[in-house]
């Protein structure tokens, strides 16, 4: 992983679908928590059990969210691509990843520092509430998708 400085982060944040519609002030608060990260193909963006220090907004590339199952090896739960959001374990204690995140191709993310984000949300409850609504929507979608996969709709 190669973290770079957070200058020029604001326009990138503004363009990311997850943050669309946030005010200039809100984007600038988030820019304080942001840095660009890049990963080569097959790098791990996150590792289950490790401290969850970041939330990743995918700018380019694709990441497979996997879980290790002793008999089946790494099972891909889903893939998250450009415009997607990866990881919420930074939001709730004990702040540890539940899944592995494995770059399927060269990937760039906007990495938002979890600790700074929590502090920014506490300092500005409007921003915190707005972001929580957005994350809740992502949780809802993931839950929905997981149930759908469990239904195994294509099975005869």
């Amino acid at each position: 992983m190669t973290p770079t400085g957070n200058e020029a982060m604001e326009p990138m944040l503004e363009q990311h679908p997850f943050l669309r519609g946030l005010s200039k002030e809100q984007l600038s608060a988030l820019a304080q928590c942001a840095a660009l990260s890049s990963y080569d193909m097959d790098d791990y963006v996150m590792r289950a059990g490790q401290p969850a220090n970041h939330c990743h907004l995918i700018h380019k590339g694709q990441v497979a969210v996997t879980v290790h199952e002793p008999r089946r090896g790494h099972v891909v739960v889903q893939t998250v691509g450009e415009g997607g959001v990866l990881g919420w374990s930074w939001l709730v204690p004990p702040y540890r990843w539940c899944f592995d995140g494995h770059a399927l191709q060269a990937t760039e993310t906007i990495a938002l520092d979890g600790e700074k984000l929590r502090a920014a949300f506490d300092a500005d409850c409007c921003l915190g509430y707005e972001m929580l609504k957005r994350f809740t929507q992502v949780f809802g979608e993931r839950l929905h998708a997981a149930r759908f996969q469990l239904l195994d709709v294509y099975k005869n």
């Binding site: 497979a64 099972v75 891909v76 889903q78 893939t79 415009g83 979608e141 996969q149």
Partner: peptide, 23 residues
């Protein structure tokens, strides 16, 4: 193309097809 369950050497999308509509 997306699959509900990745197997073998698949490196494409994994997840339900309806999620592709969004993006």
């Amino acid at each position: 193309v997306t699959v509900d369950r990745a197997t073998g050497t698949w490196r494409g999308n994994v997840g339900v097809v309806t999620q592709l509509i969004r993006r």
